[in-house]
């Protein structure tokens, strides 16, 4: 394995964007060539070498999968890992918005917190955030047809996350071990979302398909989701919770067939309202 250490020369005052700061673009390039990559500091066109100090191997590696990029002080870097296809990108700390945007493969690991739009329009690969992340994880952009969000791959957030997670996603898995906010899985067409902790309001708004598992408390449920069953476990990939879940289907305003698993123990109000119907079921 070949490791590059990428450090900003100075603390960034404005957002920085570099579509070439990815393992697969470093592959086969010498450090001199890497320093010439175009980057944007705010609206100023720069070279990567103007903005960063890069320590790396003297001769380039030809196999991107072997390449690991370690970046520090990246809170203001936007679109980190833009369309990357392979290799490993590790952020030693926080990262800015749109990390992993349209990622196609490889590993993106954020040791601190991530901003919003993490893994937006993702097409493959693996993202892990050890801290918390923002809103619109694995989402489609506003205006995109539902289904243009995440299509493949996995995003894992160990801490908390924001709202509109998995908005417009089609396939793939998003796992948040902590708490999340409103509108989980809004407009989703397929794929799976797992929230270990609490979720906010309006889970599954206008979802057409897919699976959402909420291990904690929800702040109410949309009336357009109908109770279907009671099951004794729910999981997404290897994240499993062995306890009772109420299974809802919806969103009926879009004739949706999404499956919503709500933990029974954390949601006594919903459970009691549904008891009559559950008895029928």
């Amino acid at each position: 394995m070949v490791v590059y250490y990428v450090r900003p020369k100075e603390k960034f005052q404005v957002p920085v964007e570099c579509r070439y700061l990815r393992p697969d673009k470093f592959s086969g390039k010498s450090l001199e060539e890497i320093y010439e990559f175009i980057a944007y500091e705010g609206g100023v066109k720069r070279k990567l070498g103007d903005l960063f100090d890069i320590e790396g191997p003297s001769s380039p590696s030809l196999n991107p999968e072997d390449i690991e990029l370690r970046i520090k002080d990246a809170e203001k870097i936007r679109y980190l890992g833009y369309r990357m296809t392979s290799g490993t990108l590790i952020v030693e700390g926080d990262v800015g918005s749109l990390a992993g945007y349209r990622m196609r493969g490889g590993n993106l690991i954020i040791e601190g917190n991530a901003g919003s739009w993490l893994g937006a329009r993702m097409r493959g690969g693996n993202v892990e955030v050890k801290g918390s992340a923002g809103d619109f994880i694995g989402a489609a952009f506003v205006g995109d047809k539902p289904g243009y969000g995440m299509r493949k791959g996995k995003i894992l957030v160990r801490g908390d996350a924001g709202s509109n997670i998995g908005a417009g996603m089609k396939s793939g898995a998003i796992i948040v071990l902590g708490n999340a906010s409103h509108l989980i899985g809004a407009h989703m067409v397929g794929g799976s979302i797992f929230i270990g902790g609490n979720a906010g309001k309006f889970v599954g708004a206008r979802a057409q398909g897919g699976k959402i598992v909420i291990g904690g408390k929800v702040d109410g449920l949309l009336p357009s989701f109908y109770i279907d069953d009671v099951v004794n476990k729910a999981k997404v990939k290897e994240y499993k919770l062995e306890k009772e879940f109420l299974l809802f289907r919806g969103d009926s305003v879009v004739d949706g067939k999404a499956r919503l698993y709500i933990a029974r123990d954390a949601n006594p109000e919903i459970s009691s309202l549904k008891d009559l119907l559950v008895a029928e079921v």
Binding site: G43, S97, L98, W117, G134
Partner: peptide, 12 residues
């Protein structure tokens, strides 16, 4: 306009 053409991402 950072790249010379218009882009808009809410929250960003």
């Amino acid at each position: 306009f950072s790249r010379g053409y218009p882009r808009m991402v809410p929250g960003v």
